[in-house]
Design a protein around this nucleic acid. Sequence first.
DNA 1: CTCGTAGTACGAGGGTTATCGTACGAGTCG
DNA 2: CGACTCGTACGATAACCCTCGTACTACGAG
Lengths: 125, 125
Amino acid sequence: MGRKGSAVTDTAATGRALPHPERDEIRLETVLHALADPIRLRIFRELSAGEGELSCSQFDLPVTKSTTTHHFRVLRESGVIRQVYRGTAKMNVLRRDDLDDLFPGLLDRLLAATELQIRRLGGGA
Amino acid sequence: MGRKGSAVTDTAATGRALPHPERDEIRLETVLHALADPIRLRIFRELSAGEGELSCSQFDLPVTKSTTTHHFRVLRESGVIRQVYRGTAKMNVLRRDDLDDLFPGLLDRLLAATELQIRRLGGGA
DNA sequence: CTCGTAGTACGAGGGTTATCGTACGAGTCG
DNA sequence: CGACTCGTACGATAACCCTCGTACTACGAG
């Protein structure tokens, strides 16, 4: 789904374009599904902790490169993050504005919940 | 998993017992996964709208009885709802207290988000 | 141009999930 | 007891998802 990639995408830094859902296309179930995975939840958390954009390679995840690609794509296609190519790197940012508009306060509560849970269970599994 | 059902369960009205996770066993990823399904999200919403307990059969879901059983079990095992047998019926309630304690404010934001989304996309798919 | 780095595409394996149908168990009411 | 209702258990199917490895493309640096 989405090989050619036209529609409404980004063409920021370098040429390549990436398909993102429009704000109105974002669905709660899809967002919840995206965040229901430990690795993606971790990406979500680290992404919101760091101020600016983070490249995929800056995350130290316990999976291979291809799996990493997969998870970032799920997050992008669900509307949780926005991805832009910058040279050979791919930068990631949370779509805070869109998500806060669609689901007011949800992101903050979700973030707080992850923090509390880590404090509760430790950073491990 | 959990055929005999001992551990810490309920034995409220009628004899049969149902396995529930302890409060400290509830994990955010699991809760998110449970709510990432349209049918379960709908159950979640209707359950929080109605004040008291609701039996499984009071929900008008577009799936068969066995599938309904499946979804309620996922919700129960993730810690989102509490189920108790009352005669031949099985009553369901949200575990508001536990969830609010573990993930403060999350439920309310989630509920609000579902309402907003319905207003945005209509009650349909 | 050549090499190295960042990330993708594709395909496959293994596990989980959603759905159903049918057969069954537990209570309630007559 | 017998019939009815509510819900379960079991088995089957098809779809999906996470994971990986390998081969590949896109840029940037020397």
